[in-house]
């Protein structure tokens, strides 16, 4: 069905060789850009996971997911405002605030996402396939509207409360915040992978994704499983929102639409429905964007990202790590 795989390898090989050449000739800039891409990609990966899980289980492109992510950041900045945090340095109160706010926001977002699923998607489970897509778009507008009404159209400040230490290693500049993003992202992705593979609920999710009717016959509560998927996706999106805020310190209400689109692209890129695939897809897109901004020119970045996407899908129609499952 697909064109030979070597087309895909030629594509990847060329990119690797070009980048390796840069790495050798201008190592400092290369590794600096690599760090930028890595941090950006880690956040995309967190958002992409929510897309890939939901798509895997009910075949819905959940356009509202990006806005759940942004709303997480908005709630995060509001909650942090209740603590006596100090911006620009790292204090014990900052740490306590973070430890409290992280799980609280994640849980709130989980609750919101379950409600969204209940209101906008569940009643349409047997409707034409595109009907929930439209409610997802509607929900996306709705959430953007809530944030717009709440904090207005301008950018909103997110407190800068991470440690500000930074280092130059061989001319490459990086700080605690860069490490923080990558580490927290990696931990969350690993936790999710363990959860999906090891727990009973995770097994139920995989079964539901594979064949909903068969899963139901095996006694799996479909509604509960799907709700759980939305809940976990939103946990990660909420965490992603706070991490975004801590890292960039500026958020605005339309952030999620675009980031969501990129994250969904990342999910497809990695092979939709595939957890490690989504994480890798996020990283690849983050790195591509950073390298393209730096080496090719920022106005070509969109063309490069989506060009690569189309290229990969043409040569490998199920994404980087996608399984070649026959269509039902």
């Amino acid at each position: 069905m697909s064109l030979p795989d070597y087309g895909f390898y030629i594509l990847c090989g060329t990119a690797v060789i070009l980048l390796a050449a840069q790495a050798v000739t201008h190592p400092t800039q290369f590794f600096q850009v690599f760090i930028f891409g890595l941090t950006q990609g880690a956040i995309y990966a967190l958002v992409a996971l929510g897309y890939t899980m939901v798509y895997g289980i009910i075949e819905l492109i959940n356009f509202a997911h990006g806005d759940v992510f942004t709303l997480g950041a908005y709630i995060g900045t509001t909650l942090l405002g209740f603590f006596a945090i100090t911006e620009g340095t790292f204090t014990a109160i900052n740490l306590i605030a973070l430890i409290i706010v992280f799980p609280v926001v994640m849980l709130i977002m989980g609750g919101i996402n379950i409600t969204i699923e209940r209101v906008a998607y569940r009643p349409l489970r047997n409707a034409p396939r595109l009907a929930p897509l439209i409610t997802a778009i509607g929900m996306s507008f709705f959430l953007e509207g809530v944030m717009f009404l709440w904090r207005g159209p301008a950018t909103v400040h997110f407190p800068d409360i991470l440690p500000t230490q930074s280092w130059y290693v061989a001319g490459v500049f990086f700080g605690v915040r860069d490490i923080f993003v990558v580490v927290v992202g990696a931990v969350l992705v690993s936790l999710l992978a363990v959860f999906i593979n090891q727990t009973k609920l995770g097994k139920a999710m995989r079964a539901t994704a594979q064949d909903r009717d068969a899963a139901q016959l095996m006694g799996i509560d479909i509604n509960r499983t799907i709700a759980a998927t939305f809940f976990i996706g939103a946990l990660l999106a909420g965490a992603g929102g706070i991490i975004w805020g801590l890292y960039y310190n500026t958020i605005y209400y339309q952030l999620g639409f675009r980031s969501g689109l990129i994250a969904f692209t990342a999910a497809v890129f990695g092979g939709i429905g595939n957890i490690p695939g989504a994480a890798i897809g996020g990283l690849v897109i983050g790195l591509t964007a950073a390298f393209s901004d730096s080496y090719i020119g920022s106005k070509w970045t969109q063309v490069v990202i989506f060009g690569i996407l189309i290229g990969v899908l043409v040569f490998r129609p199920t994404g980087l790590l996608g399984m070649r499952v026959p269509e039902k």
Binding site: Y55, I61, Q302, V303, F306, L309, I310, L313, V314, P317
Partner: peptide, 27 residues
Amino acid sequence: PTLRLRGDYLAIVTLGFGEIVPQLFYN
């Protein structure tokens, strides 16, 4: 080249195309 793709992979390719074309007119 892309219609061999199944289901929503096609949707993503068209999405990508839709992103690229206005950018090219801009560039």
